[in-house]
Structures are given as structure tokens and as C-alpha cells.
């Protein structure tokens, strides 16, 4: 559409490549080439599969965040929300072991519980923002603190561990593969495709974009602004729940340090992907690439000694700043 962040910055512009959509893809490609040059093992099947699996958590959350940000909101609470959902889920499943045993039913009930919590938490964020007329930044800053302290309280300052027997049943959700791809990658793909369809092909998606562009226009155009905005937070909550469901079997535990800074990584993925932070223009495809870029940086740093792995955050930070700087460049044109 109107945002062509990279067109003047790269010489590729002359080749007729639409850098609007291609920008993040090219960045990812360059990163992969760098990764391969540093260590050919980068493109090994094992590493690619690992990279995709790692991207799935942030990616799924970031897809939810794309809806919130496109409609002009922000959700800072997602990391804490993931932690509290993981905690409550573990407590629930451990409790269910005593009544219905450590079978698949327990895991399914645990997952249901996670989904209900995610939707509920999203609804609270949405309702406070719309009905309560409080800025989204403040509402979610508040719930971020609340969720984080709740998980610390539930874990009594320590770690909540999943019952050992259930761990065995639940484990495949993270570690198994289907048709050669790990389960988390499948979930990521399904969420991504659904998200893309919802944002680009339905009236709801159009409404999100309209609200983010200009809330008054949306209101005068017979759009139920409050309802649509609340739904975006519910979608965000649902995405967090799904990400948590595939995350819990990885370590089988939750603590106050679970999901720390995930909100910033999710927002970063959305912005790197070309979605405009102030709303009105969202790209699910870009968000997926953004999540992949962030994970790839960390992965490459693991492969090389040239830059310390501790500088992961520095590299991610630089990428975010460059991405937004390129967006600003387009605003001036």
C-alpha cells in the first residue's frame, strides 16, 4: 500500500521489486546468507527446524499483537499473561491428576483452561480500554504487573513444576513432528494462515484497519468500534494461550521469569514486519518474517564466536531501530 519504507534505501528499488512487502523478506534472506557463511551447519535440517520451533512462541503472540496494533492499540501484558496462564495451567493439571489421572483428558482440560484464561484476560484488557476509556498503554501496563505478580504468588516465589507423569503425555506437543515439521511449527502455520485470512479477507479485518486509521471515521461508518477493539484484545489473549500451550511441555515448569520481555519481542516482530505502530496498516506476513528475523539473530550468534551471545539484545535492538527508521523515511517522501 502506501508504505514503501525501503524503496529509497536499497539499490534493489530499481529492479522493480516491491520493497514494501519484500523488505523484511530480504532482511531475513541476508541474515540466512550470513548465517550460512559463518557456519554451514546453519542450514542443516535440525537447525532450521529448531529455529522455526523457537520462532513459534513469539510468532503466534505477535500475530495477535498485529490485530491490536493495527486497530490502534497496544498490549504490554502478553509476556506476563503467558506466565500466569502457564502457572495456572500447571496447577490445574497437577490437581486433576488426583481426580482423573494422568491421561490425555487432563492435558486437554489443562489446555482448555489456558484458552479460557487467555480469552478472559484479553477481554479484561479490551473492556478496560474501551468501556473504561483508559489508554491501552496504561491498562496493559497495569495488567502486566498484576499477571506477573500473580504467577510469582502462585509459585510462592519459586517454580511451578508439572507432574512428571503428565509431562510424558504432554511432551509430544512440543517435541514431536508431523510430516517432518515440529508440532509448534504447525500451530504457528495454522494461526498465521487464520490470522492472514481474518485481517485481509473479512469485514472484521477491514474494521481493524479502519479503526486504526481514524477512529472517528470508523464510528461514523457504522462500525461498533468498542466491540471490534475488544475482540482484538481477545484474539491477542487467545494467541497467548496457544503459545503457552505449546511452550509449557518444553520445560514443564513456570516461574516468575517465564515469558519475560516477550511483549517487547512480539511488538518488535510486528513493527519489523511493516505494521505501523500508530495503527491503520497491518501485515500478518510481515509479522511472521519479523518473528523469524528476531529468532534468527539469536540463532546466528549461537553459531559464531565473533560476537558474544550476550549481545543478542543489541542486535535485535539495532534491527528494530533500523526498521522504524526506514518507515519514517517513507513518511517524509
Amino acid at each position: 500500500m502506501s508504505d514503501k519504507p525501503a524503496s529509497k534505501k536499497f539499490s534493489l528499488a530499481g529492479m522493480g521489486v516491491d520493497l514494501t512487502t519484500a523488505g523484511p523478506a530480504i532482511a531475513l534472506l541476508i541474515l540466512c546468507v550470513i548465517g550460512y557463511l559463518l557456519n554451514p551447519a546453519f542450514i542443516s535440517e535440525g537447525n532450521i527446524s529448531n529455529l522455526l520451533t523457537r520462532s513459534a512462541f513469539i510468532g503466534i503472540i505477535a500475530i495477535g499483537a498485529t490485530f491490536v496494533i493495527t486497530s490502534g492499540g497496544i498490549d504490554l501484558s502478553v509476556g506476563s499473561m503467558a506466565a500466569v496462564i502457564a502457572g495456572v495451567m500447571i496447577i490445574t493439571m497437577n490437581a486433576l491428576v488426583e481426580t482423573i489421572g494422568s491421561g490425555v483428558a487432563t492435558v486437554i482440560l489443562g489446555c482448555l483452561c489456558a484458552i479460557i484464561l487467555g480469552i478472559g484476560a484479553g477481554y479484561i484488557n479490551g473492556a478496560l480500554t474501551t468501556k473504561g476509556k483508559i489508554e491501552a498503554f496504561i491498562v496493559t501496563l497495569g495488567t502486566m504487573g498484576i499477571f506477573r505478580s500473580l504467577v510469582t504468588y502462585f509459585a510462592d516465589g519459586g517454580t511451578l513444576s508439572l507432574n512428571f507423569e503428565i509431562r510424558g503425555v504432554y511432551r509430544p506437543v512440543y517435541y514431536d513432528s508431523f510430516l517432518g515439521l515440529p508440532i509448534p511449527v504447525w500451530v504457528f502455520a495454522v494461526v498465521a494462515i487464520s490470522g492472514w485470512l481474518l485481517l485481509n479477507r473479512t469485514a472484521f479485518g477491514r474494521y481493524c484497519t479502519a479503526i486504526g486509521s481514524n477512529e472517528s471515521v470508523a464510528k461514523y461508518s457504522a462500525i461498533k468500534v468498542d466491540r471490534v477493539k475488544t475482540y482484538t484484545y481477545i484474539i491477542q489473549g487467545l494467541c497467548v494461550a496457544l503459545a503457552t500451550i505449546i511452550y509449557v511441555p518444553r520445560l514443564g515448569s513456570a516461574s516468575s521469569s517465564t515469558g519475560v520481555l516477550w511483549e517487547l519481542e512480539a511488538i518488535a516482530a510486528v513493527i519489523i514486519g511493516g505494521t505501523v505502530l500508530k495503527g491503520g496498516y497491518g501485515r500478518i506476513g510481515g509479522t511472521i518474517l519479523g518473528a523469524l528475523i528476531l529468532t534468527t539473530i539469536g540463532n546466528i550468534l549461537n553459531f559464531t564466536d565473533m560476537i558474544s551471545n550476550y549481545l543478542n539484545g543489541t542486535m535485535q535492538g539495532l534491527i528494530i531501530i533500523i526498521a522504524v527508521w526506514l518507515q519514517r523515511g517513507s513518511a517524509k517522501n
Binding site: 500500500m1 502506501s2 479502519a210 486509521s213 481514524n214 472517528s216 471515521v217 461514523y220 491503520g280
Partner: peptide
Amino acid sequence: DRKGKGLLLNQ
């Protein structure tokens, strides 16, 4: 208010 409430100018 055509620009403020009527149309999405960036669309």
C-alpha cells in the same frame, strides 16, 4: 467533517 470523520485518507 469529510477528512476527520468521513473518509480514511490513507486508504
